[in-house]
Design a protein around this nucleic acid. Sequence first.
DNA 1: TAAAAAATTGGATTGAACCCAAATTATGGT
DNA 2: ACCATAATTTGGGTTCAATCCAATTTTTTA
Lengths: 149, 149
Amino acid sequence: MEPECGLALSARKVEYLKFILKTGGTVRTNEIASAFSVDPSTITKTLAEITAAGYITHIPYHGVCLTDSGKHHAEFLVKRHRILSLMLARNGLSSQEACREAERFESHVSKKAIDRICHFMGHPRQGVCGEITHDDGCLVGNQMDRALS
Amino acid sequence: MEPECGLALSARKVEYLKFILKTGGTVRTNEIASAFSVDPSTITKTLAEITAAGYITHIPYHGVCLTDSGKHHAEFLVKRHRILSLMLARNGLSSQEACREAERFESHVSKKAIDRICHFMGHPRQGVCGEITHDDGCLVGNQMDRALS
DNA sequence: TAAAAAATTGGATTGAACCCAAATTATGGT
DNA sequence: ACCATAATTTGGGTTCAATCCAATTTTTTA
C-alpha cells in the first residue's frame, strides 16, 4: 500500500517525465527547458534527481531516456492524468477545464485511488485528452477487479 | 477568474484554517500545534501569514479567530473538501478513502471547478464526511446556475 | 506573587524549484 | 582536422514554505 503509491514525484517532475514519454527516445535538456520555459541548468539538476529515482538514464551532454521502470511509471502518470480529467469532465467540467484542473492536482492522487476510479468507470479507453491504456502488469479484467476488492 | 480562484492557501494552511473553523471562537496556538503535532512556534509563524492574508485576527498570547472573509473562505474550504470527497466516493472510493484522498489534493482545486462539480451534482446536501452547505454569496439556484454557464 | 504554562522571537535547517555566470563538451562548416 | 558556436553542466545563490530548538516574554494559577 505504501510502496508504489504514485506520490513519489513532485508536480514538476511529473510534468517532465510525461514530457519525456510523449517526446520519446532520447530527449535533450534544451527540449525540456524550452517546453517549460525554464533555464537549462534547472533541467539538468532536476534530471539528476529523476535519474536518482531510477526513472531515466542520463548520458551527460546527450540527453535522457526512460528506463523500463520509468516508462512504466510515466505511463501510469499519463493514465492518472487522463482518468482524472475524464472524471472531472463527467462531473461538469469542459474537456479543457478538466485537463487543466487535473494537471494542477494529479501529482497528489494515489495509484490506489486511480485504480478504483478506473475500475468504477469500467476501464474507459477514451479520455478527454487522449486514449487510456490498461495494461497493469499481468492483471487484467476479472483478475484486476478481484485484486482491487 | 483569477481572483478568488481558491488556490491562495497552501495545503497546510488550508488544514489550519479548516481546523480553526471547526474549533470555533478563539483558538489557541497550542490547540493547533497539538492537533497537528507541530511545534507551537511553527504555528505562531504560520498564523502570522494567514493573518497577513486577512483570514484571521491574531491577538498575541491569546489566540486567533476568523475574520468575516476568513469564515467565508474556510466555509468554502470545507465545502471543497466535501464535494471532492463525495465525487470520489461516487466514483469507487470508500468514504474513508475518499476523505483521505481529497485531503491530499484539495488545496490545488479551483473554486470554479468546485462550483461546476457542485452544480453538476445538483448541490448535494449530504457528503461522506458531513453536511454540505450552499450559500454562495447572494447567488442561489437558477441565479448561480446562470452565472456559472 | 512566584512558579509553571503558553506563546512568541530569533536563529537555523531542509527541500524543491529556480536563475546566472563560468567552464566544459559536442558539432558543423571550411 | 580545427575552431567557432551551440548545448550542457557546474558552482554559487535566491526564494519560499514548513519546520525545529533555545531563549525570552506574557499569562495564568496555586
